[in-house]
Design a protein around this nucleic acid. Structure first.
Length: 244
DNA sequence: ACCTCCCTGGCC
DNA sequence: GGCCAGGGAGGT
């Protein structure tokens, strides 16, 4: 179930008995740094969630990876679709993981507007596709990209290289507030409750979404019906009046 | 800049 | 039975 670990035995062998010394995050990748320079790379994929449980607690379906700690706590990756993963890597391997290819973190290392303008210059791809491109900036997924675009009043299909400086600035300025609001609410648990907080509570940002998943419902700003289109094979929700 | 694939489950 | 879904890699 740890497809990303080429030798499955490595996962246990590399982590067993080692002390977790630090937790980090870059974009949507979570990193556990263990003694002995072993890094546990974790990603929730589409349907994953982390669960903290006691070893005796019954495992829910799709508890695909379980890491036990000696204080009687287990970290479980529950992930029906198995696009999420945990992999334990050595320093030599770390460089060739996708973590190294990530752009600056959208929350902690947000690029300046001028840098973003430069990164988007000449690009003909829709801005939404590039907001989802983790090499440009890491951390925005489909929900938050749409919410950022609504807040900045830009349509996702606009060609990235043709956005004005102020438009790129508006997008940049929207990223922090949107992500912070999402974090304050504990994230976005949709109807299927695939994503939950590690203690089992549902994230409540779904109640505060302005556009994502609201096709046909009235825009909270102008009342127009929210529309859905497809960009880069992903759903895009937007307000046809508020977003240009 | 596109596609396809990796998976399972829920909904129509 | 077919379609859809919070992501990302890999190939063309």
């Amino acid at each position: 179930m740890i497809r990303h670990q080429r030798r499955k035995a490595d996962f246990r062998d590399r982590l067993f008995g080692r002390k977790l010394v630090e937790l980090d995050r870059h974009g949507k990748f979570m990193l556990g740094l263990f003694e002995g320079d072993i890094t546990l790379i974790m990603h929730l994929g589409m349907s994953g969630r982390m669960q903290l449980a006691e070893p005796g607690e019954k495992r829910v379906a799709h508890s695909n990876v379980v890491v036990g700690f000696d204080d009687e706590i287990e970290l479980r990756l529950v992930d029906p679709r198995t696009f999420g993963f945990m992999v334990a890597v050595t320093p030599e391997e770390f460089g060739s993981t996708s973590v190294g290819k990530l752009g600056p973190d959208a929350l902690n290392q947000l690029p300046r507007t001028a840098e973003l303008v430069a990164a988007l210059a000449g690009r003909t791809a829709p801005i939404k596709a590039l907001l989802l491109d983790q090499r440009i900036m890491a951390g925005l997924g489909n929900i938050y990209a749409d919410e950022v675009l609504f807040r900045s009043r830009v349509r996702g299909r606009r060609k990235a290289g043709r956005l004005s400086g102020p438009e790129v600035g508006a997008i940049r300025k929207s990223i922090g507030p949107v992500l912070q609001a999402g974090l304050r609410s504990g994230g976005t648990s949709l109807d299927d409750l695939a994503y939950l907080l590690p203690d089992g509570r549902a994230g409540e940002f779904v109640d505060k979404l302005k556009v994502y998943g609201r096709e046909g419902e009235p825009c909270k700003r102008c009342g127009s019906a929210i529309r859905r289109s497809v960009i880069a094979q992903r759903s895009h929700f937007y307000c046809p009046e508020c977003q240009v």
